[in-house]
Amino acid sequence: MRWARVLVLGLGVLGLGSYVGTGELFSLGLDAWDAGMAGAGLALASGPGALLANPAGLAGETGLQLSSTFGSTFGQASASTAAVSLAWLGVGGVRLSLPPDGGTPFLQEGALLGVGIPISPDFSIGARGRLLHLVYPEEHTGGALDLAALYRGPVSAALVVEGALAKDPTPREEWPPSLSLDSLSSFLWGISSPATWPLPPPGSGRMPLPSGWGPSCGWGSWGCGAGYPRSLRPLGCPPAGGISGLTWR
């Protein structure tokens, strides 16, 4: 794991003094179940949700799968996402806007394109491109290329490097790289306290995701999930503070 230490250290140096929250819009697109599972989706990524969580999870997918979420984040903003996965490929969009209540207009849009490539039955790699379009209050566009790896086994492990290459969406605000690691040794379906270790580069401002709960249920090809990470408690109770979504596979 020496290379991983070197990589974290290197990204950490790059991340010193860098801007925080540039690509936050795309985190809204995380599957409700993933959010409820406190970010464990990095190592459990599959289907359309893998496009947002870990594109390496797109490898080995077969057939068409759709995922869509819409909600009011903490009663403050409208966020909607849509993602489609089809045999190694995934494409999706994210939108965040404020209600037209006379306040400051705000609108951000994002688009994603990801690919997952199986290296072995247990190991895959992936890449993802993200396009960020700031519409209001000022129009800017930027983008980032992300790299990912995923090992599925008795102990699943994932690595995602976000912003390995990036074009800053706002002048003079660089889009910093970040590194997330995740492993999962056990899994209790529906409710979990997974071992999740997003390892941010020092100074990037990324903070560990605390555990939460995320019940989900399904019938046939339909599934739904609701998530409520504990960190959101000051911001309100479900449904205002939670995240919910609907998935068809």
């Binding site: 801007y19 925080v20 929250g21 819009l25 903490f74 903003a77 404020l98 951000q108 889009w175 000051p234």
Partner: peptide, 21 residues
């Protein structure tokens, strides 16, 4: 670290409850 241009939420948390967001 500076925060990027975007949308953020502010709230007061206290032993007397929270403010509006």
């Amino acid at each position: 670290n500076p925060v990027a241009s975007g949308l953020y939420l502010a709230v007061i948390v206290s032993d007397r409850g929270t403010s509006t967001i």
